[in-house]
Amino acid sequence: MTVLLQLLFQGVGIGAVYALVALGFVLIYRATNVVNFAQGQFAVVGAYGMVVTTADLGLPYWLGILITLAVMALFGALFNLGVYYPLRNRSFLPVVISTIGASIFITNIILGVYGPEPSMLAPMLDAPGISLGNLFLDAQYLTIIAVTLALVALQYLFFEHTLLGKRMQAVSQDKEMASLLGIKVGWMIMLTFIYSAMLGGIAGILVAPILFVSVGLGGQIALKAFAATIIGGFGDVPGAIVGGIAIGVIETFGAYYISVPYKDAFAFIVLFAFLLLRPSGLFGEKVSQKA
């Protein structure tokens, strides 16, 4: 029973990271109808932001986080201008390839500077964690879960209770109509990229202390976040969160009970099953329209 709970806790913790990246995917997808294949690299940039600020420059943790977030915002804006905006009127394939190109670019810039050896970061908190009987709740994982919960709540408030949030939703549902109403579509998309990059960055900041920071991190996180979005129902915000956590739990259990080397395969097997049996995902398409 303890093992079960311990695994569940860990699975939810790592799943929360996938959920954050998946959320970034979903937001960009809804705003632009394009899957951003460089989303995982956003997390890598965030993680290396922490390496640069706290390990290399020796800044305090809180300052490192602030600087990293600011850099992520700028990075999201540049990403939009360089990778998406010039191709916004083309079909999805060129944009997808362009984001893949960006992913190669980011990976290799970091690789060029830091090399393939992973970097280590000090833990975010001094306290190791909380013990509940035989169950040990690691502080890092607790932080991840808490931050994810807070972000999800904030995002909910933003989208449901502010006019700006409604405008961003309108843009994601019908760009042409939104521009006819006077909503600044280009600016809304810019905001989406900035926010999405910051989400990715936060995911990177959160995992940096528990995993070794390396460029390979992005690809694995991104692919699992993809899987999460599809399991949750493409373009669905709650679906991405549930999907992310589901993937985290599945692979943690799979690794413990079935096979460690194939840990990374479980997400894809579940993904395959969903794609073939229920491509609309757990939450399906909520908006049905006449063909």
């Binding site: 191709l87 190109g101 190669i104 990976t107 290799n108 690789l111």
Partner: peptide, 14 residues
């Protein structure tokens, strides 16, 4: 950095 340039080239081609 040659692979980074390669990635940038992909974007430019698109």
């Amino acid at each position: 950095f040659y692979l980074a340039v390669y990635g940038a080239a992909v974007i430019l081609i698109m």
